[in-house]
């Protein structure tokens, strides 16, 4: 964010949370209906935000309409607190919401806005997770008309989506969706859970915390309430499975920094040696483990730097 761009502090200053109170109330009403109808894409009047659509304006609008004084806010992008999108959003929210505090610590946060990941640390009842959603409708790949899709959603008719998954199996021997895995909520609506990896999909099932989804461009909000059934679409004989982190010897890869063998790993190539490196995608989880136990560096064979 441009440090020279200061918000005016006179009577023309922005409202707490940037949005005007009418906008907040409208989003709040949509949120209550979204929670009451788990997985239903509830329309809302997405406002123009001072950043481009696609940069998390849907999640941002949810955050701004529920955040309050004393809130401890965490913003992550692909698991990291310090990437551009996360820093931008956090700074904007801190600037427009005096009285809140930012944190990187998942356990300390009361409100977490995230792009593409659900934190590794299990969430609690007193926390709310807001996910940024680029495309809200899982049926868009099989039906271009929104009014027809709304009918299909209402009737719980996902036969064409299942056919699409079946065609995947016929062609490639497995369902090829890597992220945004269609997931059925409370036995009725199928949602696009935003581009979280498959690894994170089971975390929505019977979660302790409320999970809210905001799609600014698509003008939709939806919710997975706590303790709610969230079942990824699959077939009896081809069950859902998460990413395979085993190496060629069948051993689970571990994070090269903290040694975690239960986290979602990001793969990068070490340019010098051309070796693949694996590291936790959740930076706070990784840092916490490091600070508790000291570096676990298993460097040499993985070409650690």
């Amino acid at each position: 964010m441009n440090k020279n761009y200061l918000l005016p502090l006179d009577e023309a200053a922005y409202n707490f949370g940037f949005l005007d109170e009418y906008a907040k109330k409208e989003i709040r009403r949509a949120l209550l209906k979204a929670i009451s109808i788990p997985g239903y894409q509830t329309p809302f009047a997405s406002r123009e935000m001072p950043m481009g659509k696609g940069f998390g304006t849907g999640g941002l609008q949810i955050t701004l309409s529920i955040i309050g004084v004393g809130e401890k806010l965490k913003v992550i992008d692909q698991g990291a607190d310090d990437s551009v999108n996360a820093v931008n959003l956090r700074q904007f929210i801190e600037m427009t919401c005096p009285g809140i505090s930012g944190t990187e610590d998942t356990e300390r946060a009361s409100l977490i806005q995230s792009r593409h990941r659900i934190p590794e640390t299990p969430l609690r009842k007193d926390q709310v997770l807001v996910l940024q959603v680029p495309y809200s409708d899982p049926l868009v790949v099989v039906e271009p008309s929104e009014s027809k899709r709304k009918t299909m959603h209402g009737e719980g008719d996902y036969s064409r989506l299942l056919t699409k998954l079946y065609e995947d199996i016929v062609k490639y021997d497995e369902i090829t969706i890597s992220h945004r895995y269609p997931t059925r909520i409370n036995g009725h609506y199928v949602i696009d859970p935003s581009p979280i990896p498959r690894f994170d999909v089971p975390k929505m099932h019977m979660s302790n915390a409320l999970i809210l989804f905001g799609a600014g461009r698509e003008k939709k909000v939806y919710a997975v309430p706590p303790y709610t059934d969230a079942t990824p679409l699959a077939f009896d004989d081809v069950p859902f499975r998460i990413e395979d982190f085993r190496d060629e010897n069948g051993k689970r890869r571990v994070c090269r920094r903290c040694g975690a063998d239960n986290s979602f790993l990001e793969e990068s190539i070490n340019d010098a040696a051309g070796l693949k490196l694996h590291q936790c995608s959740d930076s706070n989880y990784c840092n916490r483990r490091l600070s508790l136990s000291g570096p676990a560096r298993i460097g040499a064979e993985e070409g650690g730097i």
């Binding site: 209550l32 929670i35 529920i66």
Partner: peptide, 18 residues
């Protein structure tokens, strides 16, 4: 007061979530 309304809404949202 909008700041108070936010506090009330969070209670209400919690009531709906649980």
């Amino acid at each position: 007061n909008p700041l108070v309304q936010q506090q009330v809404f969070r209670r209400l949202m919690n009531a709906f979530a649980y």
